[in-house]
């Protein structure tokens, strides 16, 4: 197990008291696995990524039974120890990649920073030269051919897709074991998105790197993704292998998302209304008790005011009192 998160709760102090933005979320990622985390914006999926990376400021409170990366307990590490592990073994790319590039440094200078010192040898001048070669190599790997002009470019001169490629190049510089991709393509056109996904899939195949992809749209996930986790309003709804989950969702939330997605387009009557979930996602000030999907769920019953435990069924897990598609259980 590469990443093991058990019962991760992240809360924040607000004027009306402490709010659990993320409630008892489980997430396990194996070596060499592509795992996609799907949830609407504001569901707390980016919080998970930031908690792993240690980017949350002090007004967020993190509790977990387990937050382990390989043999390191991330919760007990100091910031600098953590930085050491993260810098080498975990890399992260973000949505809105341009703003993650320093506007005052050229792309070459910033990529050079990401090259590990232990990959270089020799004296200062030689190291400098090697660093440059390594940067050129990285640029070629992400499919940028004109490395000369790219290395002297500044962030404002790049397109969103090119900036994301630079971020990927900088992320793979260490050959990390885990790459966290936080909605890397949400502001891109579909063609560019496919390019980025192809790159990620290629590095996954070449280095056996695990990928945690965070996405807000079931229709825009990587086709190589092996496991899916659905998260709604800070609670984990369902997790399992992609194929099985999409074919037979156990959780009403997954079902509802699938109904609105392209996967089931052929089953819908032409010109029929899109079957969406009623209502809107609850605000942090008014979170429902129990299952947070409750007020919007079509088969909610009184029992749903108790938070359902995560029930495991072979390699899948779901948090629902009244799961769907479970013939064999009766």
């Amino acid at each position: 197990m590469l990443l093991d998160i058990r019962n991760l709760t992240i809360s924040r102090d607000t004027p009306t008291g402490r709010v659990q933005v993320l409630e008892r979320v489980n997430l396990q990622i194996n070596e060499g696995e592509i795992h996609t985390l799907v949830g609407e914006s504001g569901s707390g999926k980016s919080l998970i990524a930031r908690a792993i990376m240690g980017f949350l400021s002090s007004n967020w409170h993190i509790q977990a039974d387990r937050l382990w990366f390989e043999e390191h307990d991330l919760l007990t590490l100091t910031a600098s120890q953590r930085r050491h592990i993260i810098g080498v073994d975990i890399a992260m790319i973000f949505q809105d990649a341009k703003s993650y590039l320093d506007p005052n440094l050229t792309v070459g200078e910033q990529l050079g920073e990401a090259v590990l010192d232990q990959d270089l040898s020799g004296r200062w001048l030689q190291r400098r030269k090697q660093r440059k070669e390594r940067v050129i190599q990285l640029l070629h790997r992400v499919g940028i051919k004109n490395h000369e002009s790219m290395m002297t470019s500044y962030a404002h001169e790049l397109s969103e897709g090119a900036a994301q490629k630079i971020m990927i190049a900088s992320a793979i510089a260490h050959r990390p074991k885990l790459l966290i991709a936080d909605e890397p393509t949400s502001t891109m056109e579909p063609a560019t998105r496919q390019q980025i996904y192809r790159l990620l899939a290629q590095f996954h195949a070449r280095y056996g790197m695990s990928i945690l992809l965070i996405s807000q749209d079931l229709g825009a996930i990587m086709k190589e993704t092996e496991r899916l986790s659905m998260i709604y309003s800070g609670q984990l709804m369902e997790t399992g292998p992609t194929r099985a989950l999409l074919d037979k969702p156990h959780h009403p939330y997954t079902e509802a998302l699938l109904n609105t997605s392209l996967y089931r387009q052929s089953q819908r009557e032409p010109r029929s209304r899109l079957p969406t979930l009623a209502g809107t996602e609850p605000s942090l000030q008014h979170l429902p008790i129990g299952c947070r999907l409750g007020p919007r769920c079509a088969n909610a019953r009184p029992k749903c005011v108790q938070t359902p435990e995560l029930s495991k069924l072979r390699d899948r897990a779901f948090a629902c009192h009244y799961p769907l598609n479970l013939e064999e259980k009766e």
Binding site: A79, S80, R83, G87, F94, S99, E113, A114
Partner: peptide, 29 residues
């Protein structure tokens, strides 16, 4: 507060390095 500072940390740079080569030059601007 800017994103590229976060990105610097994500690269595994030390705090001193992030402040010296990313934060201060941009603040000077």
């Amino acid at each position: 507060q800017q994103n590229y500072i976060t990105a610097g940390y994500a690269k595994g740079l030390s705090t001193a390095r992030v402040i010296w080569s990313h934060a201060i030059p941009n603040a000077m601007q």
